[in-house]
């Protein structure tokens, strides 16, 4: 499809000079995402942040895993890699180490990043290589039909929890911070400009940045749990949302029924690649 055939939707969110079509592979449109899915908003926020940072698309690598989040990389007009389930962070580690000149961004989901790829996440947090990891949390495995994930809320119905989920959900941000990530943040898809700002901060941060995006799966998870249409789902997230926390105030991440957003943690630790290069050769 040509650019003219895809009208620019309103830029009421204040995205002056940002034409998302300049960052998309328009030939692939229409995209595969379900109506009401929050992933499209997250993609918009990511591309908007890239635009604001003036990153050259030729120097941008987007690495994704498997699942709905994994499919996003294909729509981005950059060097894109749709890798295996759970492994985008490990793949990105090799790419960034071999090519420190590239901006490497991982787009992943709650299942990809926290279940099958959980080990890679914690070690990437610990290593602190300069990668930005954007995790789209929709609390379910959407692509495979809506199974329980490590972030599925209490008692929710999924195709593999027909009587309600009994496993507690991870707090992904607490997990990333605990594992040593030097930049941790969370935002709602409802707040696209704030999400854009958060991603921009994450990309600018020298080290491993973990960003959790509260997305929504209306088509499968929402319907199964009677959570309403997309707008209702994200408004419900809003009702649980606490405050913008860009000022790094004391955080209460485990407050039940609340969601802290913004930058939740920032650490000051030397970036892995820099540290590695400064070591030089071993003495013989």
């Amino acid at each position: 499809m040509s650019k003219e055939n895809i009208p620019l939707t309103n830029n009421e969110d204040g995205a002056d000079n940002f034409d998302i079509r300049d960052y998309l592979r328009l030939d692939l449109f229409p995209h595969f995402m379900c109506p009401g899915c929050g992933h499209g908003i997250a993609m918009r926020a990511l591309l908007w942040a890239i635009h604001e940072l003036g990153i050259d698309k030729n120097q941008l690598a987007v690495v994704s895993g498997i699942g709905c989040s994994g499919r996003i990389s294909a729509y981005i007009d950059a060097n894109t890699f749709h890798t295996t389930h759970g492994r985008p962070i490990a793949f990105a580690t090799g790419l960034k180490l071999a090519r420190p000149d590239l901006h490497v961004i991982v787009v992943t989901g709650d299942g990809d990043c926290l279940a099958i790829g959980g080990n890679h996440l914690i070690h990437a947090c610990r290593r602190n290589l300069d990668i930005t990891c954007v995790m789209l949390n929709n609390e379910t495995y959407g692509m495979t039909g809506g199974q329980v994930s490590p972030t599925t809320s209490d008692d929710r119905f999924t195709t593999t929890t027909p009587t309600g989920n009994i496993e507690p959900a991870f707090d992904p941000c607490a997990l990333a911070e605990g594992a040593g990530a030097t930049f941790v943040g969370r935002e709602l898809t409802l707040q696209c400009p704030s999400l854009k700002n958060l991603i921009r901060e994450g990309i600018s941060h020298p080290g491993f940045s973990f960003i959790e995006v509260l997305s929504d799966c209306t088509e499968i998870y929402g319907r199964k749990n009677d959570l309403g249409e997309s707008a209702e789902m994200i408004m419900k997230q809003k009702s649980a949302y606490r405050s913008e926390n860009y000022g790094l105030e004391p955080k209460e991440m485990f407050q039940p029924g609340t969601v802290s957003t913004g930058i939740l943690h920032k650490g000051d630790r030397v970036e892995y690649g820099e540290s590695l290069r400064s070591k030089g050769p071993a003495k013989t």
């Binding site: 295996t84 492994r87 490990a90 090799g94 180490l97 070690h123």
Partner: peptide, 11 residues
């Protein structure tokens, strides 16, 4: 798993 992924990423 990660080793093989990183090797492919570097390649």
């Amino acid at each position: 798993l990660a080793s093989m992924a990183a090797v492919i990423g570097a390649s």
